[in-house]
């Protein structure tokens, strides 16, 4: 088994004349929870967008389970085993919670063009959908339209969908953005539970979240990876302190 589920080698991205990322090397191990942090403008979002296929890298290699995924279109990326959430909630507003999650699960079972719900696989799909809804404590809301949910519930639906596609690697873009302390605590617990046994990569501003949830952390400064290590190592690294203090944050 390849220990490096997601591997970046010399990934660079330039927009016009601006070099946003230069020569990023990153190994993300199977089953780990990996956080990308760094001061504003360090290139976190660009890196996230490169991995999730929004842009193609200018140079370098991005590989998922040993095959290159650089420049793949979203649906191909997803079928290769990569799921993502969005910083601004992307749920289907006028569909019910159940339909939202059903769409994710249906695709995983290959029922993308189905006209009928006949056959044993639909029982499995229904069961998996119910399991996810129950896992997110949304059973009481399952018949409501996603637009009518509270913000934190919508985030939970979004994470359920990302997990529901059966992706082995899950990218979360600031999963706790805009949440209260209480909601954040709740969602961290939820993410931990839902992504059990999967590889998790997230971009996050909230250091509490990073240090409670992540197994390893990579610090991105000026388009380069400054250091990668365990939360404890990162906390005590003088270069990280300098990068953040120099930037006036934290």
């Amino acid at each position: 088994m390849n220990a490096n589920t997601l591997k970046l080698e010399g990934v660079a991205k330039t927009f016009g004349v601006v070099r946003v990322l230069e020569a990023i090397d990153l190994d993300i191990r199977q089953g780990e929870r990996h956080a990308l942090i760094g001061p504003n403008g360090a290139g976190k979002s660009t890196l996230f967008n490169l991995i999730s296929g929004a842009f193609a890298p200018t140079s370098g290699l991005i590989a998922l389970n040993g095959t290159s995924i650089g420049g793949l279109v979203p649906h191909a990326l997803n079928r290769a085993g990569l799921g993502r959430s969005f910083q601004i909630t992307h749920v289907f507003d006028r569909l019910t919670v159940r339909e939202n999650i059903l769409l994710a699960v249906m695709g995983r079972f290959g029922k993308r063009w189905s006209l009928m719900r006949i056959g044993p696989v639909w029982a499995q799909i229904a069961e998996e959908t119910d399991r996810l809804i129950a896992g997110a404590n949304l059973a009481a809301q399952a018949g409501k339209r996603a637009a009518d949910l509270a913000y934190s519930e919508q985030r939970a639906v979004e994470i359920c969908m990302t997990v529901g596609t059966g992706a082995s690697v899950i990218l979360l873009d600031e999963p706790t953005a805009g949440m209260s302390r209480e909601e954040t605590r709740h969602i961290i617990e939820f993410i931990r539970r839902m992504t059990e046994g999967r590889t998790l990569v997230m971009v996050e501003h909230d250091m509490d979240v990073v240090f409670t949830l992540a197994d390893r952390v990579s610090v991105l400064v000026n388009g380069r990876i400054l250091v990668t290590g365990t939360p404890a190592e990162i906390r005590s690294d003088p270069r990280v302190r300098e990068a953040y203090l120099g930037d006036g944050e934290h």
């Binding site: 649906h75 289907f92 596609t165």
Partner: peptide, 15 residues
């Protein structure tokens, strides 16, 4: 209907 609501999401669900 998912495409009507949010096409990008549908694509990232593998469709």
């Amino acid at each position: 209907r998912g495409i009507r609501e949010r096409e990008l999401r549908i694509r990232f669900l593998g469709y």
